[in-house]
């Protein structure tokens, strides 16, 4: 009984971290102006939050059959998540999307050019 309680408290902490990352990723999806930066920020939601959720679910798994499958899913996710991001980034790169440069850098460059 107590072992279950400890597992639940740990899982609650991990799920809280997942909610934090997921919210930040979703905000990042709207905060930055170009596809590359959105992809980077949304990786918080699409990669870290999903991994964290899977680890939390692993802690709460009721049987070994379920736990082993969750481990296999995590291992395959380590391969499939970057493949998806890479396809999207490569598509943007091949379509010739320009990279967003924040104002701070642009002024620095301008100042260097002026004299």
């Amino acid at each position: 009984m107590t072992a279950m309680m400890i597992r639940e408290v740990l899982a609650a902490c991990i799920f809280a971290a997942a909610v934090l990352f997921g919210t930040a990723g979703v905000i990042g999806l709207f905060r930055f102006p170009d596809p590359y930066s959105r992809l980077q920020a949304s990786a918080l939601c699409g990669t870290t939050a999903v991994l964290t959720t899977c680890v939390g679910a692993l802690l709460l798994a009721p049987s070994w059959a379920v736990a082993s499958r969750v481990i296999v899913i995590i291992i395959f996710f380590l391969f499939s998540a970057p493949t998806g991001s890479h396809i999207v980034a490569r598509f943007a790169w091949n379509a010739g999307t320009p990279v967003w440069r924040p104002d701070r850098l642009r002024t620095l460059k301008g100042r260097r050019k002026a004299p």
Binding site: L39, Q40, A41, A43, F79, P82, S85, H86, A89, R90
Partner: peptide, 24 residues
């Protein structure tokens, strides 16, 4: 290596050509 670079938030591999990596 390219997959690991993409997996860490903050870096995305755009292209991998033999030993030449293009990273955002």
């Amino acid at each position: 290596l390219a997959n690991s670079i993409t997996l860490t938030p903050g870096t995305v591999t755009l292209d991998l050509n033999d030993d030449h990596l293009t990273v955002h």
